[in-house]
């Protein structure tokens, strides 16, 4: 097993009465590319904030490279994406990159870094004059300025067009191929499916699943049953239903039982298909099960 770069042990974090993280334990090992999934308010940001030294846990321990993330020297090994809306508007792209780079003993160098993210021509441009996509790319580039061992990428491709997103994916893969470790959050599940090897699903401040992409997909035991029918009776174990162009898609936990009940009801149907759920469907199943229990 590779060395552990970051670790949370029984970490709880409260904001007043709100329990943002509830006894979370996890281990990020060297060379992993981890997707962090969860609905808004599930505790994703809090988890990253704790690992990046922005906040302290209410109880439990957070370790980064064997030390405390609150120690600035320890943080030399990480890279974080700022929110692109927060980039200081009056600074030039080159100036802001120089400023961030100055914090790290090993640097990529402003020119090389910006070229790598397709921002080479914008060195002299003030941040306030960049497009949303350019700002997003600059924000992601800054995470890599100090040759980090571990990067936290929070929604790296939100607001990018397809081409720019693919380019960024290539960049993240290249970093990972050279041994870099990535913790990635995204609203786009296809992004997590395309990049991540391991998926962490968080909901209500707890880790609901922590496994390979394929295992998480299967874990919920969820299948997608698709058929053509006029109308359906009440059926057991349906997590979600969707109707498009006469086809009905059902997200179910037990497809065999559903088919038995469907046949027994005598409702006419055709074109029956059963297939494993996508990551998104598994994720919805996992988090909705959790909220049903809560």
């Amino acid at each position: 097993m590779n060395t552990s770069l970051a670790r949370a042990i029984e970490v709880t974090r409260r904001y007043g009465d709100v329990l943002a993280l509830d006894r979370v334990s996890l281990d990020i090992r060297e060379g992993e590319l981890i997707g962090l999934l969860g609905p808004n308010g599930a505790g994703k940001s809090t988890l990253i904030n704790l690992l990046a030294g922005l906040r302290r846990p209410t109880s439990g321990t957070v370790e980064l490279f064997g030390g405390s993330p609150l120690d600035p020297v320890v943080r030399r090994g990480i890279g974080v994406t700022p929110q692109e809306t927060g980039l200081p508007a009056s600074l030039r792209v080159g100036e802001i990159t120089d400023f961030v780079s100055a914090h790290f003993p090993e640097r990529v160098g402003t020119a090389e870094l910006l070229d790598g993210f397709g921002l080479g021509d914008l060195v002299r441009r003030q941040v306030g004059g960049l497009s949303g996509g350019q700002r997003r790319r600059l924000a992601v580039a800054l995470a890599f300025a100090g040759r980090p061992r571990l990067v936290f990428l929070d929604e790296p491709t939100t607001g990018l067009d397809v081409e720019a997103r693919r380019a960024l994916w290539d960049g993240i893969r290249a970093f990972h191929d050279e041994g870099g470790t990535v913790l990635l959050t995204s609203h786009y599940l296809e992004e997590i499916e395309a990049l991540a090897e391991r998926v962490l699903v968080v909901g209500h401040g707890r880790v609901l699943a922590d496994d390979s992409v394929r295992a998480v997909r299967g874990m919920a035991g969820t299948r997608r049953v698709s058929l053509v029918a006029e109308d359906l009776p009440e059926l057991p174990g349906v997590l979600g239903a969707e109707r498009t162009d006469g086809r009905i898609d059902l997200l179910v936990t037990d497809p065999d039982r559903l088919v038995v009940e469907l046949v027994r009801s005598g409702v006419p149907f055709s074109g029956l298909e059963i297939r494993p759920a996508t990551l998104e469907e598994a994720f919805l199943a996992l988090t909705s099960k959790e909220s049903a229990r809560a």
Binding site: N49, A52, G53, L54, P72, V73, V74, R75, R76, I78, V80, T81, P82, Q83, T85, G86, L87, P88, V100, H103, F104, G146
Partner: peptide, 12 residues
């Protein structure tokens, strides 16, 4: 501003 939490993740 959202820039400040980012600054605090930098090693300083």
């Amino acid at each position: 501003l959202p820039w400040d939490p980012y600054l605090r993740t930098l090693p300083a």
